[in-house]
Design a protein around this nucleic acid. Structure first.
Lengths: 154, 154
DNA sequence: CCCTAAACTGGAATCATTCCAGTTGAGTGG
DNA sequence: CCACTCAACTGGAATGATTCCAGTTTAGGG
């Protein structure tokens, strides 16, 4: 019925739909994250520059903030790693992060919906969101990781 | 029966028990975190300095790392806020963080033990731990926070 | 009491991110 | 179709948390 945001809307449509100005930097950044989910700011910067030529660092930070605020991107900030961005927004999914290289995978909560998302004691806080982060080693880092059990390897 | 780590062991005992050298900086840092749970590095630095006089920034970072590695402290790193440390280790409890001031409260998982701590899809990762972070506003920040619903207030 | 590795000092460096002041350009209204 | 205005972008400096480094001190075993 409604068609506010078609499944595969173009970057331009997404931006207009969110009430944002359409600029080359924003279109490029949106596409960059679409092609490389969980991209770092640096990766987006590289991608945007390879498409547009000279783009300032600040512009990319501004763009990513604007897109995040508008709900077109979601920012992920794993402890000890630079921020990353993804296009999957709205649904409450979680992330699995590699301790070694910072690689990220999406994880849907097993238990249907928000199992432990209501704290037992909220200390008077107004709880807005809950996020679950799984920490481990990605397939690439498993073999070469220091401290890994040698017996585990072939 | 066993008494490897008595409930209220002194800082010195804790350090020896963990196989660490007993130094003034470590004792002071351990006490500082004990008296001020969820203390920031900066808070620990201030506390240690007020007790010992001149102590280098590096020393406090070293001490906190050593104590964390030894399992005497647990480090908490909320996105966008400096790291904090607590004495409660071993048990898998979670945290509620104030978006505004970074204040932290402890939260035991409601659902007994580790409900959503097994990801539905691990992407080939070896999962080591899962952490849950609740985001919200602490009682202090609730009133003065920007963007708060005015109708909610008395 | 002496010796050595571990811990500490203090200053410089790094990394992600933000601040700032001036310039450019998207989109609106004439 | 053009002019105008505010949001967006530029580039360089600044910030804040943390780490690196080379030299000095000290805990604690021998």
């Amino acid at each position: 019925m409604t068609s506010i945001a078609p499944a595969a809307a173009s970057p331009e449509e997404l931006l207009r739909g969110a009430g944002l100005r359409v600029t080359a930097a924003r279109v490029a950044a949106l596409r960059a994250v679409g092609e490389n989910q969980h991209a770092t700011t640096d990766a987006v910067l590289g991608s945007v520059r390879s498409e547009l030529g000279t783009v300032s660092v600040q512009a990319v930070y501004d763009v990513l903030h604007a897109l995040t605020d508008a709900g077109l991107l979601r920012r992920i900030e794993p402890a000890g790693h630079p921020a990353r961005y993804e296009r999957r927004t709205g649904d409450n999914h979680h992330h699995i992060v590699c301790r070694s290289c910072g690689a990220i995978g999406d994880v849907d909560c097993t238990v249907g919906h928000a199992p432990c998302l209501t704290p037992s004691d909220d200390h008077g806080f107004v709880v807005e969101t809950a996020e679950v982060t799984y920490w481990g080693l990605c397939p690439d880092c498993r073999g070469k990781a220091p401290g890994a059990d040698p017996a585990t390897q072939p």
